[in-house]
Design a protein around this nucleic acid. Structure first.
Lengths: 218, 218
DNA sequence: AGGTAAGTCAAACGATCGTATAAAATAACC
DNA sequence: GGTTATTTTATACGATCGTTTGACTTACCT
């Protein structure tokens, strides 16, 4: 019988912790820059100053290395600052502004401040891989859920119907696409802002826009 | 001196026309399904029942094969039905509805009816290749220009300023994202419609939404 | 019908890919 | 400080990639 070793998730030696982290970081950079198929493990390992065998040793395969480079920073991002929860029905308009500011800031500032996470997410968004399902379940579901509750309050409904879902989708798209559509947007007109104060102003403009839209929709 | 042959753009023999077309079509299917790096020329040629050498003979390289598979159907799509032009200032609200219906129908129906163009565009949108610039210049510029004129009329402006550009961007995103964001949308809630009558209804809902948003924005 | 250019074909090149393996080196523990 | 398990290393395998070549076959023209 073959000796089947499960990859070393948690390094046992002090220096090895840093080795694994370096490999993961460089992998994230490279995947973000060139895409999953665009970069080879040899280049990644060279950049990380790590031996080729480290990939199998620490992650088992290229797929697992990618998965962790994508998922793990997202978990951390959501732990550092979680979705503002809508407390009920007191001020849904204000809650919407808070949600928009949170979403846009997460997407345009916080995720972009991460050295590679933004570009990595954009790739995953557009050409979904095996990891998209997990990413949605882990990150997007919670964020969307709060928005749906706000929209329900604004439309005086007590459950999510087709209209609420569609409105929520449009709002989410407006935010996510400020980031994902950037390559196209900046070729068409002005690129979306990245500084916090400008993002705040953008949130307020979008707030005006979608609030009127929500009220107007039958 | 080496004999340098430029690729055979226009086949001279009747049967060869069909060979080139078959290769181009299968290439489009394959690139759309697996991405540029995800598919090899051997698989494409096998599916097209064409010899491997045909790629060099007709297109010169894999890149050129991809470029033509992406660009050429888009040109045809815009030739078959061009952007509705806004005649001036008589009825900008109606013009906006027309534009929305055109954009959504192009994106959700016409492009999707093409056997592979939609998925191919989505890939290009999110992870731009060398061909994006050409695609924007060729297709998106004209479509956006008409929208900008409509928004200008709605806001009673005589030139495109930052606000007009941002509003136009939001509207474009709302449309394009119905298509590009589909993998995510259908995991979050209802997928965007694809039948013409449903798309018409969607256009009307978005029309209500963005019209109110435009009027509300300061 | 024959000549000639257009098109097709099989075979191979060099490079790079992800993965596998087993020995060498190293840090941690008794 | 010797022992041991952990980590690193060098090397190789088998597959697949895009590209190239030159000979073969075919369709078109006079």
């Amino acid at each position: 019988m073959k000796k089947k070793r499960t990859p070393r998730i948690a390094p046992l030696r002090r220096d090895a912790v840093e080795t694994r982290a370096r490999l993961l970081s460089e992998a994230g950079h490279a995947f973000a820059k060139f895409g999953y198929d665009g970069v080879g493990l040899r280049d990644i390992c060279k950049a990380a100053e790590v031996n080729l065998g480290a990939v199998k040793y620490y992650f088992g395969s290229k797929q697992e290395l990618y998965r962790e480079a994508l998922i793990q920073p997202h978990i951390q991002l959501l732990q550092e600052e979680s979705v503002p929860s809508f407390d009920g029905s007191t001020d849904p308009e204000g809650a919407l502004l808070n949600w928009l500011y949170f979403a846009l800031r997460t997407v345009l500032v916080r995720r972009r401040e991460h050295p590679y996470l933004s570009r990595l997410f954009i790739r995953e968004f557009a050409s979904p891989s095996f990891a998209l399902e997990e990413l949605i379940e882990l990150v997007l579901k919670k964020v969307r859920h709060e928005l749906v509750r706000i929209v329900m309050a604004l439309k005086h409904k007590d459950q999510e119907d087709r209209q609420v879902a569609e409105l929520a989708n449009m709002i989410i798209l407006l935010c996510v696409q400020q980031e994902v559509g950037r390559p196209v947007l900046e070729r068409l007109a002005y690129p979306p802002p990245t500084k916090d104060q400008d993002v705040r102003a953008l949130a307020e403009r979008i707030h005006r826009f979608v609030l009127a839209g929500i009220k107007a929709s039958a």
